[in-house]
Nucleic acid binder design. Structure first.
Lengths: 257, 257
DNA sequence: CTCAAAACTAATGTATACATAAATGGTAAA
DNA sequence: TTTACCATTTATGTATACATTAGTTTTGAG
């Protein structure tokens, strides 16, 4: 799944390391949305030959960050605000299907235990007061929760598709947790989110497929709400959401305040 | 979308042509599921250097047909019966979301007209009697219908995701239309399918998002029913479904007759 | 001045050689 | 017999040179 942990930085091959570097360059705005990528220039910049660089470009195309041009070469993909919104919702749709399938087919006790432990740990982290939230730990456990969920359907097709969607910047479950906001609505959303974690675990345990699906779809809506909250009240926080620099200004301006 | 038309055969580059050839080799069973692919051997076999061959292998990994091995290199992905089933259902889930979003956001009249014409053409092709079906034309128009639907949400994220899913063999809308069956249940499924085409068009026109979504989800179920029908009554037809050679025998045997 | 064709330059696609890592086979020790 | 180690072979990763295509500039005609 699109989880950007530090250990990814030590890629095994030059191509993999180039992926990390190029991704960073794009997300940092060093190459603008719509901007072309030139192989010779980039390979010199990264100090590698064109061969692994080309491989890296292909991988980033798979991730959805780059587009192939009809005449060859790549450009950085530009997103609209709706794209961001759709990607988040799509994640919810697929996680919803995963949760339903897990509920319908049943889950091995060991896998349920993993999720139970994660949910219990999340409960301790969230606390009972908005000032009582360990954000870093929450983010970590949130990721674990979503990884555990991805495995629950025991379906390589579903896992792979979820992985594909969440490779987009802004589409992974934890991509909105870097927002620095003291607005109580934002902080309160964590409580709601955790309630949904608990609820979907219960729905799966009880074999309630439709309920599980509905909960996960609504769960993703939380990220969409947070996105809208940021756009409306504090746009400086957009820099804390990966990939938002790639969204065109026109569609951001068009978001109703 | 995963539409395999003949014009794809003339790839612009050697890498693209290698993709076509390799895909064929895998789907024809020339390389078995789980089997390794060796670059030097394949490049000699295809008469190209390793460079475009490597590019082609990467593209087929993106399609989901090949898996990357931890020590490098690729192997052909093996599927279970459930994988096939899940892929079909997942397509329905995503097409369902597309239909809902189209209904919710509205669709430009020109796009609606395209779909109206396609549905009308499908009506003439399906006829009123099971013996009165022009299969080749149906298949063509069915593809057009699904392409038109993919465009209707006007969402690059959704279109791209649908494209990704349907790149899998057996997951594209037309992948079950090569089944040669005189069983009236199979033939009748075309009538039902076409009724669903009509219904989803109407739902989108009327802005009925939930209805549109439900119809497309059920629509994909038709392909799952046809798959089960074939497995239970006439397994010789499995060769007419792309990618079924890649499904492990064990899970095929496990399908209840 | 505009447009089309030709010439030139830059970028991408491909082949090949070299470097590095993975896999295989043989041998010795427990 | 099994396991570990080492040497050899094979396969993949990378660099570089060459071939082909795309893009830009220049020139000439109407």
């Amino acid at each position: 799944m699109g989880v950007r942990v530090q250990s990814d930085r030590q890629g095994k091959t030059q191509a993999q390391r180039a992926v990390l570097e190029l991704r960073h360059m794009v997300l940092a705005g060093e190459i603008a949305a719509g901007g072309r990528l030139f192989e010779v220039e980039l390979s010199e910049h990264l100090g590698i030959s064109r061969t692994p660089l080309r491989e890296a470009l292909g991988m980033l195309e798979y991730e959805g960050l780059l587009l192939r041009r009809s005449g060859g070469g790549y450009e950085v993909r530009e997103f609209t605000f709706d794209d961001v919104s759709d990607a988040i919702e799509l994640r919810g749709i697929i996680e919803g299907m995963i949760a339903r399938v897990a509920a319908e087919r049943g889950v091995a006790p060991a896998r349920l235990d993993v999720m139970r432990e994660t949910v219990a740990a999340l409960d301790t982290v969230v606390g009972t007061d908005a000032n009582d939230v360990n954000f870093a730990r929450y983010s970590e456990l949130n990721t674990q929760f979503h990884l555990a969920l991805a495995d629950m359907a025991q379906s390589s097709v579903l896992r792979r598709e979820l992985e594909h969607v969440t490779r987009l910047p802004f589409a992974a479950p934890g991509d909105f947790l870097n927002i620095q906001s003291q607005d109580p609505r934002f902080l309160r959303s964590l409580f709601i989110s955790q309630a949904q974690h608990r609820a979907v675990l219960e729905a799966i345990e009880l074999g309630e497929g439709a309920r599980a699906e509905a909960i996960m779809r609504e769960h993703a809506r939380g990220a969409r709400h947070n996105l809208q909250h940021v756009v409306r009240t504090d746009r400086s926080q957009l820099r804390n959401i990966p990939g938002l620099t790639l969204v065109d200004d026109k569609s951001l301006l068009g978001v109703k305040p």
